[in-house]
């Protein structure tokens, strides 16, 4: 595939990536969600099962958790694009 054609192709894919969550938000209403695994846990809690062991450590609050999450994506993106830059430079050389 030619480089330019590929770029257009990727932008098209990117458009879908952006549209899907937006549509999800519009249909779903709000973003007050606890995550699917939280819902499953709630369902189990409603039966007569209670967890027999707790996590050793949990983030002290939602803000700290967001911090860890964004740190994680920042580092992931950093490394990912470091390599993309690396191979791009290598190709150009």
């Amino acid at each position: 595939m030619k480089s330019n054609k590929l770029k257009g192709y990727n932008f098209l894919l990117l458009a879908f990536v952006i549209i899907i969550p937006i549509v999800g938000l519009m249909l779903g209403g709000d973003s007050e969600f606890g995550g699917a695994d939280g819902m499953a846990a709630e369902m189990i809690d409603n039966s007569d099962y209670s967890p027999w062991i707790e996590n050793i450590w949990a983030p002290p609050g939602g803000e700290t958790e967001s911090l860890l999450f964004s740190l994680q994506s920042a580092i992931g993106a950093g490394v990912l694009f470091y390599f993309i830059g690396y191979i791009k430079g290598k190709k150009a050389a």
């Binding site: 999800g24 995550g35 699917a36 999450f69 994680q72 994506s73 992931g76 993106a77 990912l80």
Partner: peptide, 18 residues
């Protein structure tokens, strides 16, 4: 790295869960 980026993206979904 890719797994890190993707797994940190909590995407909203139709059911209002993520």
């Amino acid at each position: 790295a890719f797994a890190f980026v993707l797994s940190s993206l909590k995407l909203p979904s139709v059911t209002g869960s993520s």
